[in-house]
Each structure stands twice: as C-alpha cells, then as structure tokens.
Design a protein around this nucleic acid. Structure first.
Lengths: 235, 235
DNA sequence: CGCAAAAACTGATATTTATCAGCTTTTAAT
DNA sequence: ATTAAAAGCTGATAAATATCAGTTTTTGCG
C-alpha cells in the first residue's frame, strides 16, 4: 500500500538517486573512469567520521546506514541510504572531514569515485552542479524534520516514523511481493529512533498486540500502515 | 574568552556569512539591483514554513531564529542566524516551499533578494556556486550534530550547548566589552534546547548556584565558560 | 545438524523530564 | 511614573523513558 496522501515520505528521503542521470554520456564516462566496486558485508564500515575523504560512493546494491558515534561509542543513525543513492559527498564538497560514518546494513555493493573526478565533473557540468545544489537544499528539509521530531516527539511517535521510513527503504522495487519485511536489528532500530533498545522491543510488542505489525525472528512486517501512520502523529 | 581548542564551535555555525565576498563587483551589483531592506521587530515573522519562496534574505543587522512549528503550535528552533548570514535559500534552490519559518529574535534589518536575481547570479558565477555547495555541505555537519545531540544527550547537556552557541551569536564584534549578555526569552531557550521551559529555569538556577552564569532580569551572562563547556560534555 | 554467541526479550526499578497550578518579577506601552 | 500583560519562577506530582539483571530465542558458522 502506498503512502500517497497519508504520510509525506519525500520529506524523509534525500534526492541523490537520479542525480547521475543529468550527466552527458561523456561526463558520465569521465566520472566512472577510475571508479572501483567493492562489496561490503553487513556491519562493515565504508568510511569513518573524522577521516579525510578520498572520494564519494554510489550504493549499487544493498543498504547503508549513515551514523554518528559519541564519545561512549553510542550510535545515532542519521539516514539509511538505499540503492542508487550517493554518500560521502558532503566532506568532499566542504573540504572537511567526514562528519559521519557509513556502514553496510546488509550485504552491499558500493562504487567508489575519486574526489578529483567528482569535482572535475562538477566543473564540467553546470546541470549536475545545479542538481546537486537542489539535492543539498532538499537535505535541509530532511534533516530539520529529524531535528524537530527528535526534540519534541515521544518514543512511540519516533518509532512509528522510523518504521514507516524503513518500510519504504526495504521495498523491493523489482518484486511483485506486496508485503515488505524489514530485516533490521533492534539495536539499529533503537539507534535510528533514538530510543533505548528495551523500549523499542516493548513498543514493538504493543504495535503487535494492536495488529499493526507482526514479527518473525528479527524480521518485522507492517500489517496496517494506516494505523502506523496514525501512531506516528506526523502530518 | 575564546572557545578555541575547548569547544568546536564551527560545527554549530553555518558558513554563509562571507559568501557574497566571492562575487565580482558586477555580479554583486546585479544581485542587489532589486533588493529591498526591511526592519523587523522582535517576534515578527520573516517567512513561514510551507509558503512558496519569493526570494532569499540577508541578515543586515540583528538576529533571526529559524524554526519549525508542529501541529500544536510548538516551536523547535533549528538555527539562529546572525548578522551577515543568508536565510531562505534552501527553498529557492530546491524548488520547494520553505521548510522552516524565520522570525526576528530582536529588532533586525533584512535585505530581500528576489529569487530570479539569486539564481541568475548562480548561473553567472561558478565561484559563487561552488562556495554555495561548500556551505550547504557544511550544513550537513551542523544539522547532523543537532540530530545526534537531540537524540542522545540529557537536558543539561543540551542547555549547556545551546548557551555556548548563543554566547558566540551574541558577541558584539565591534565592542570592547569582555562580557556578553544573552538576551533571550526562556521560551526561546527552551525551544532551542528542546526542553520544557520550567526545566530550563531550574537548570539555569543550578548553573547560577555553581557560579557558571548570572542573570539580570531576562539577561544571562556566562561567567565561567570552561565549566559550561564541561557541563556540555561535548568534544 | 549442533552449538556458541549474539540478539531479542522480560520484569522491576530508577531516573529524567514534563506538566500543572499558582505566585512573583519584568517589560513595554501609555 | 504607572500599570497590565507577559514572562519568569516555584513546588509538587505525573508521566515517560532509561537502566539493570536476567532468561529465552535466533543466527550464523563449522
């Protein structure tokens, strides 16, 4: 079931997915001329907060969590990047170190693109540059949404929102399957919603008792998206 | 007393202040050719979340809060823009509505620049465009910092951070005055730190009792920035 | 398939923070 | 200077959430 009209999902997703499409064939060829593909297993770190960026990454397959880690090692997941999305570009563009880390949420394939190539294509293609400005500005919407929710919303609402956002991420666009299983650890879910893990488990049980979702092992299946949207109390 | 080395203040500030300096005289003249200045009194709204943008604003004098409002009217302050900073550009660049609102925190003077002029200068000046990409990417750092803090830090830590960030905003760069008075309502402080107002007041009292700050009417003066930084528990 | 380790779960309690109701002080307008 | 309204403050209590300690289930590897 689609979220159209009942939950503004576009406010929760970055818009880098179709960005490479605006490149000419020539520029695209240049961009990927020195690329390299690498497979990452679940949990493997792609880049670390605080390190100097060598380039950007394209998520070819799989899912990647972008997260910040505090002094005590506690993680806060900022964003889940899906197939087709770019990551690592903030540090390259701002000339700073990576402000966050990225790790694979499941087996993933990523393409690495050297920073110089990325910056050169930026210089060559005003179209691409404008598209990037657009995407970065849209990120302000996504991130300020998160701030607002984390600052003011209850754990229940935050978990509901996280589940809705994840349901979209886990949809397999190539499958006919109607139901989507979210395969994500309770620890990652907690780190995404900013809630203690035990509380996540309790709330999931409540949601289960209310018929909103079911679980099978670690997997979560949303049964009643409308009720979940209501639980999120998010316009 | 400067924060150098004890608190990474640059992670909390956007970097649009010197951006117009990269424009040539010609481009700058074009940019401001149709500008108009307007004074806003404390509390006056500059633009509202959800409205279609007509242009961007430069804060000429004063301070402006950027905030989101939820269904119940509750505010979350996302950022405080100081003299020289640009606001309202995200919506223009992304072609979306304003994702947040902006209102004057004190009597302020703002220059309005029509969207078309801003976009035209973007087309004319690759330098400016790259500078903007840089600034937008840096925003990711600032905003993800906020997310991480709001999701995981205690009210005490969040208030301490908010006070430190505000102290920098309220510094008068033209004055010889060593001490800085923060003139901000408890409601705004609460909306900035994401805490209930009564709790802000209680924590301020604690900070006062510990010699960290003093108050006079609404005004807050930081007496011991080092202890405040320690309270923030932020590296 | 078996098994050890990791993850999910449960119950109890502690801690943190918000809310409510009222009083006091400050501000800003006249 | 005065005054009403707004803002700041206080005390008590309620609610939300985290932490702790342990048990049960799932996962993934050999």
């Amino acid at each position: 079931m689609s979220l159209s009209g009942i939950f503004p999902i576009e406010r929760w997703n970055f818009t880098t997915q179709s960005m490479l499409n605006v490149l000419s064939d020539e520029d695209f060829k240049y961009l990927v001329s020195h690329q390299s593909d690498q497979e990452y297993h679940k949990g493997e770190v792609i880049f670390r907060e605080g390190t100097v960026p060598a380039g950007i990454f394209i998520v070819k397959k799989g899912k990647v969590k972008k997260y910040k880690t505090d002094r005590g090692g506690k993680e806060q997941i900022i964003y889940v990047a899906n197939e087709g999305e770019l990551i690592g570009y903030h540090a390259v563009l701002s000339g700073e170190r990576y402000p966050d880390s990225a790790a694979a949420l499941e087996t993933s394939l990523l393409s690495f693109i050297p920073a110089e190539d990325f910056m050169e294509v930026l210089n060559r293609s005003p179209n691409f540059t404008h598209r990037l400005l657009k995407a970065l500005s849209h990120e302000f919407t996504v991130l300020t949404n998160s701030i607002s929710v984390f600052a003011q919303r209850t754990a229940t609402e935050r978990l509901a929102i996280a589940l809705i956002v994840l349901r979209e991420k886990f949809k397999d666009v190539n499958a006919e399957k109607k139901d989507t299983d979210l395969n994500i650890s309770r620890a990652d879910l907690a780190n995404m919603a900013g809630i203690a893990q035990e509380n996540v488990i309790r709330l999931l049980k409540e949601f289960k008792d209310e018929g909103i979702l079911s679980t099978e092992g670690r997997k979560i299946r949303i049964l009643d998206i409308q009720s979940l949207v209501k639980k999120s109390n998010y316009r």
